[in-house]
Design a protein around this nucleic acid. Structure first.
Length: 133
DNA sequence: GCCAACGTTGGC
DNA sequence: GCCAACGTTGGC
């Protein structure tokens, strides 16, 4: 799930704990929103950023409901974690396990599916190469 | 800020 | 139903 960090970032979600994911105005993205189940995990992706990339993990805590309009929907999410290490789009592109990921093929879709294999690869890379303190 | 890709709108 | 015009997204 993409957000421009200037508008709403992973740090802001961490502060608030929970947020409504609204403003989706694309039918395909909306349909993916509507397919989400309570308890599903989602990546928080910073778009239109320098650099863009995967920043954190969140959990769906309320399934899709009308956002005030007839047409569009939102879900509620809660903060789970910031990735131990930010994974830039450039790095994601370079990961062989992520070949064919929707993120690269349909770059303008703001809500999109991640396969279990892709999920493991991303979380694994963020943990494996995380700085130790 | 630019611009390519993509989605939506509306005249015909 | 086609397609040009227009708006939005998002990488760079």
């Amino acid at each position: 799930m993409k957000s421009e960090p200037d508008v709403f970032s992973i740090d802001e979600l961490a502060r608030r704990g929970r947020a409504g994911w609204d403003g989706v105005r694309n039918y395909q993205a909306r349909n993916f929103l509507r397919a989400m189940k309570k308890g599903d995990l989602a990546l928080f992706y910073h778009s239109n950023a320098a650099p863009p990339g995967a920043a954190g993990v969140m959990e769906v805590v309320r399934e899709a409901y009308p956002d005030g309009s007839e047409t569009w929907s939102q879900v509620d999410v809660r903060f789970v974690e910031k990735l131990p290490r930010f994974l830039s789009l450039e790095e994601l592109r370079g990961m062989p396990e992520l070949k064919g990921m929707v993120l690269f093929a349909r770059s303008r879709l703001s809500v999109q599916p991640v396969t279990p294999g892709q999920w493991k690869a991303i979380l694994g890379a963020a943990r494996r190469h995380a700085p130790r303190f």
